[in-house]
Simulated assay, not measured.
Amino acid sequence: MKNFKSIALALVAFVSFATTAQTKKVDAAKSTINWVGKKVTGAHEGTIAIKEGNLVFKGKKVVNGNFIVDMTSINTTDLSGKGKTNLDGHLKSDDFFGVEKFPTATLVFKTIGEKGNGVYAVTADLTIKGITHPIKFELTVAGNTAATTLKVDRTKYDIKYGSGSFFSDLGDKTISDEFELTVKLAF
C-alpha cells in the first residue's frame, strides 16, 4: 500500500509539472521587427525595436504571449541622409505614430489555436496610439525562435495621413492603408 501511495504521489507531481505554464522572455537584442509601408510610387522599409515580450508555453505548446514595442525606435533603412531624417521624423510625428505621446505599442494574445507543426492561429489585441483592435495572424515556433508576418490597417489607429480611404485628391501621393510587419523572435 505504501508503494502505491508513492507511485500515485509521483504521478500527481509529474502531471502537475507537465501542465505548468512556463514563461519564456523574448531576447529583445536578438529579435527583429521589419516594416514595409507602400505608396503609389513605391515603398519604404525599416525596423522597429521590441522593448520586451514573453511567450508562455505549456509543454511545447504556445498558450499565451504579450509584447511591448518601442515606437520611438522607428528607423527607415532604405534611405539615408536628409531623406531618412525627414521620413523618420514624419513617422514619429502626430501625422503617423505620435511617439512623444505614445512611446510604446502593445500586442496581447487573446486566443491561440494549434494548426500543427509548430504553427498557431493567433488572435491578439494590438494597441497603437492608445487605440486597441483585434488582429489575426499565424505564428510559427521552432526551437527557441518564433516568426510571423502581420498586416496592419493603420487607419484603425487614427493614422490617416495620405490615406486614399479618407482623402480623394492625393493622386500619386496616396499611401497604402496597410503596412506589413515581419517579426522574428528569439527567446
Rank of each mutant, 00 (worst) to 15 (best):
E114F: 06
F167G: 05
D125P: 00
E45S: 15
G65H: 12
V122E: 01
T76N: 11
H133E: 14
I131L: 09
H133K: 15
G164L: 01
T127C: 01
A105L: 01
L87K: 08
V62I: 09
D70H: 13
L150C: 03
F137G: 05
T148C: 10
K136V: 15
R154P: 09
W35K: 08
T127S: 03
V69C: 04
D88T: 08
K160C: 01
R154D: 12
N117G: 09
N64Q: 08
G83F: 14
G83M: 14
L55Q: 07
Y161P: 05
A121N: 13
N144A: 13
A146G: 15
A146F: 10
L87R: 04
K30P: 10
F57Y: 10
K156Y: 05
A124Q: 08
L139A: 10
V56I: 09
G83P: 04
I112G: 03
Y161M: 01
G118N: 05
L139V: 13
L170E: 00
D95H: 00
S73T: 11
N86K: 10
S165H: 03
T111I: 09
D125L: 00
S168Y: 10
D153E: 11
N66Y: 11
D95M: 01
Y161L: 00
G59C: 08
D95W: 01
T72V: 09
V69A: 03
K101W: 02
V63P: 04
K30F: 05
T32G: 05
S165R: 02
D125W: 00
K58I: 15
F109D: 06
H133Y: 13
T123D: 08
F166P: 02
V40S: 00
G46A: 06
